[in-house]
Amino acid sequence: MEKNIDCAVVRDLLPSYVERLTSEETNKVMEEHFANCEDCALERDTMMKTIHDTISIAKKNEKVVNYLKKTKTLYVLKGFALSMGIIAVLVSFIVDIAVNRRLTWSLIVDAGIAYVYACGLPLAISKRNKIVKMTAAASILLLPLLYVIEYVVNDNYLSQPVYWVREYALPIGVLWVAIVWAAILIIRFTKVNVWTAIGIFLLLAAVGSAVTNAIADQATLKEIYTTGYEWIDTAAYLLCAAVFLFFGYEKRRKE
């Protein structure tokens, strides 16, 4: 009889016990009872498992809800960005035809918009290596974009065509694409921190800036440094690179 009364009391207190609302003295008495009563111990374990499962399901449902909200927001943003791009293309077409009676400058605008969207597509659809894929798209599509600009300008705005892509834009574009890829590969395989990554890019950019000016001026690097002010740009790049590399070294040393 005593056991039944004890069991009834324990089971009345069991929900509070499982939720840790009972006092230490009550807990001690109940744990002593569980040690001698398999039925109440089983009831305790069942109730605790039910609560644990309920909490787990609630957390999973919360994660699912948050994921769905995030996905919905991303789809809305993607739809908005796509809509703005389409509107921009249509507006440029309409204005260009209305003013010039044919397509002229709008081809450059639309090619630029297409370039931006093509570069941003890997960010929107890829789950891994987004930066690498975006850089690959930008590298591949850069030359066609430059040729479109050259064609439109020569066809509509110059009396004598100037073919500047092959002579200037192509070597400069290849140079900076190589610099960007070199920085990405170095960062990717050396696993450096953000500070060091920026420092590495600035070092490469110092070289790229000097070579770019040499190509644009049709001069040698020696002439660029002795007759112009390229040394100021190079010094600024190197100084900034040294600062970022120092911070990168300090951060890695502390870690």
Rank of each mutant, 00 (worst) to 15 (best):
N193C: 14
I224F: 02
E150Y: 07
Y67I: 04
V91E: 04
A169F: 04
K133Q: 10
K60G: 14
L146K: 02
A88K: 03
I186W: 03
T220K: 06
A81Q: 02
L143V: 10
F246P: 13
R20M: 12
V95A: 13
R20T: 05
Y67E: 06
F244E: 01
G199E: 01
Y67N: 08
A236I: 11
C7L: 10
N100R: 12
L103K: 03
K254H: 14
V95N: 11
Y229N: 12
V194A: 13
K28M: 08
L145R: 00
Y67V: 03
L170R: 06
A58T: 09
A182W: 02
E62P: 07
L203W: 00
D96L: 10
M1N: 12
A138V: 11
L202C: 13
F201S: 15
L21C: 07
V9K: 11
K69C: 08
N36I: 15
I86C: 01
M134T: 12
T220M: 10
Y237C: 11
P122Y: 00
T220Q: 05
S139I: 00
L82K: 10
V65D: 08
R253L: 15
L203M: 15
L68D: 01
T196G: 00
K130I: 02
D155S: 09
N66G: 09
V116G: 01
I184G: 10
I149G: 02
V180Q: 13
V95Y: 01
V152Y: 04
C119I: 12
K127N: 09
I87D: 00
P144I: 03
K3C: 04
I224E: 01
A214V: 07
V194G: 10
G85C: 11
K127S: 07
A35R: 12
A216D: 07
E223Q: 08
Y249W: 15
G173I: 04
S16G: 07
A137K: 03
L141S: 07
G199M: 07
A183H: 04
G228M: 06
N193H: 12
A58D: 13
F34H: 10
I184Y: 00
R20D: 14
E43G: 04
F80Q: 04
K60L: 15
L142V: 07
Y75D: 09
T50P: 03
M134N: 06
S23D: 13
V165L: 05
